[in-house]
């Protein structure tokens, strides 16, 4: 009988410090048993449970794209027992992953449509997965205009800086990178909070345009009125939630908001869906 709690063993192939505060690291995992890759077929927006023996498991969004083969990537903020242990592990160490878990951004529904991706801080991981997936030549032709508003506190707190620069240089994606503030005289992008930059740069909402929003609660709180003003309908605003989780498969009972389990029925919900359930997130 298939055991949904059993992690797949993986090896840390590469660990990269992402941010100037050294609190965010990206881990590239390769499968100890290469045949396990077939069991971990995911879509952009899903998450996995990272398992560190002796410490426990944490739910983390998948940062690599389904189009990137042979490995899977997660960016982890150091906050607790498991994430701290993971930050102290070295390349070559063995750990486990479980998944893919949860639903994904509704790519099927968004086919042929324009997409505005709005992200803040370190919640940019599944958005990176989404952008890399969308920019794959096979996928890019299936979607309309793509805008990305991504902000962090300072230039050094932005994730995936090399890739951001590459995307800036492309003409098939409109990047609007911003920081809350900086004293760097060479900073050539925006300065301002994500909601303000969204209001300035994002296209108007219509039936053919979807917004994907992922960020800290304060960013979401102030971005929503902006999207309302721009004319986005609530079933065209896609959000990804997080709650404390253990099992990741809808059984342990802790991540529910109303009747929905964030782990199994989510983490992706439309704002319209969220309007009908309690705000316990």
């Amino acid at each position: 009988m298939q055991n949904p709690y059993l992690p797949i063993p993986v090896r840390i192939d590469k660990a990269t410090i992402e941010t100037e505060d050294r609190n965010l690291k990206t881990f590239k995992f390769v499968y100890v048993n290469p045949e396990d890759e077939a069991k971990f077929q995911y879509k952009a927006g899903q998450f996995g449970e990272l398992s560190v023996t002796g410490k426990g498991e944490i739910p983390i969004g998948i940062a690599s794209s389904p189009t990137e083969k042979g490995y899977v990537m997660f960016t982890v903020n150091k906050v607790g027992l498991v994430s701290s242990a993971l930050h102290n592990m070295k390349e070559g160490d063995i750990m486990g992953i479980r998944g893919p878990l949860g639903n994904w951004y509704p790519w099927e529904r968004m086919e042929g449509k324009n997409i505005v991706i709005i992200g803040g801080g370190f919640a940019f991981t599944t958005l990176r997965s989404s952008i890399v997936m969308l920019l794959d030549p096979e996928n890019r032709k299936k979607f309309g205009d793509i805008h990305v508003v991504y902000g962090a506190r300072s230039p050094g707190m932005l994730l995936y800086r090399d890739e951001l620069a590459e995307w800036e240089a492309r003409d098939d994606i409109n990047m609007h990178i911003t920081v809350d503030g900086t004293d760097d005289p060479d900073w050539k992008y925006n300065v301002g909070f994500v909601p303000a930059i969204t209001e300035e740069k994002a296209p108007k909402g219509d039936d053919d345009t979807f917004a994907i929003v992922c960020g800290p609660p304060i960013m979401i709180k102030f971005t929503q009125p902006v999207l309302d003003k721009l004319g986005y309908k609530h079933d065209h605003i896609i959000m990804s939630l997080e709650n404390r989780m253990k099992c990741g498969i809808g059984m342990c009972g802790r991540c529910n908001i109303g009747k929905e389990f964030v782990c199994k029925d989510g983490p992706v919900f439309t704002l319209e869906e969220l309007n009908s359930i309690p705000k316990e997130y």
Partner: peptide
């Protein structure tokens, strides 16, 4: 509802689940 916890003694460990 249940919780999942890792327990280690020496170099032997186990993953447990407990009612929560």
């Amino acid at each position: 509802c249940f919780d999942i916890q890792d327990e280690v003694q020496g170099s032997d460990g186990c993953r447990m689940r407990n009612w929560d």
